[in-house]
Amino acid sequence: MTLQATADVRASERIGAFQHVTLAAPGVVETFRPGNFVSIALHDGSHLSRRSFWVHRVRSSSSSGATIDIVVRPTGVGSSWLAGLGVGASVDLIGPLGRPFAQPKQAVPCLLVGEGYAAASLFPLAERLVERGCPVSLLLAADTAAEVIDGLDVRRSAEAVTIVTADGSMGAQGTIAQALPGALQRSGASVVYAAAPAASLHAVAGISEQHGAWSQVALEVPQPCGTGLCHGCIVPAVGEDAIAHRVRACAEGPVFRGDRIQWGLL
């Protein structure tokens, strides 16, 4: 069930290039599934688009109650506002939204590929997969070390963690497309989960297919409303009926099978 609620900021911490914001969100926590996102509205009466965020961490009980963590890169008006909120401030929160990652029925090896803040959505997934006995490997990418997402607990429970940065400031110098074939081989993964900018996801979909692995990608396109109302986040995708449709990233996605997206038209 998707809920709309006023959510209090319980903590806010700068880690590298990102602000990690903890929000009290009991309703979200109850029904959240990895791959879901949440939507936040600004209160200034001027900025009308809602802002969508991946969920980095879900805690059903902590010293602050049921909370979610989101990872904010302060670049625009909304993200800077959110990153600047102090503890005790409140926001209009809707979630969980969108179709989550489909998880394998058997305990197969999985490779999780994330870039920048988008990688946040893979951390709750990794936790869930590990609980189900799936060997999980991580490939994390970013432009610089400061944009490699923090998440030590999950990294510890993974079989292997590969890090690449475009400038070589952390891990090997390189990109997802360069590092993926090796990571696929080492992990023996039959399922690849990815969350990254579209160009990287396109590469993940193609390389996974070449290696005989299924891919599921969490796609981020601009979402004016995030709730499925405006049809402003249209993605060209091939449906279960093998027919090409225009679907909404926020409602029919944000997670899609990599081979279902018509990348050339995106």
Partner: peptide
């Protein structure tokens, strides 16, 4: 009518939307 993505940007107190009548 497929068109490309229905682009929407913000303007103070409003939304600006390229409208190509996209519909199924």
């Amino acid at each position: 009518r497929r068109g490309s993505r229905l682009r929407i940007s913000e303007s103070p107190g409003g939304l600006v939307r390229a409208h190509l009548l996209q519909n199924p």
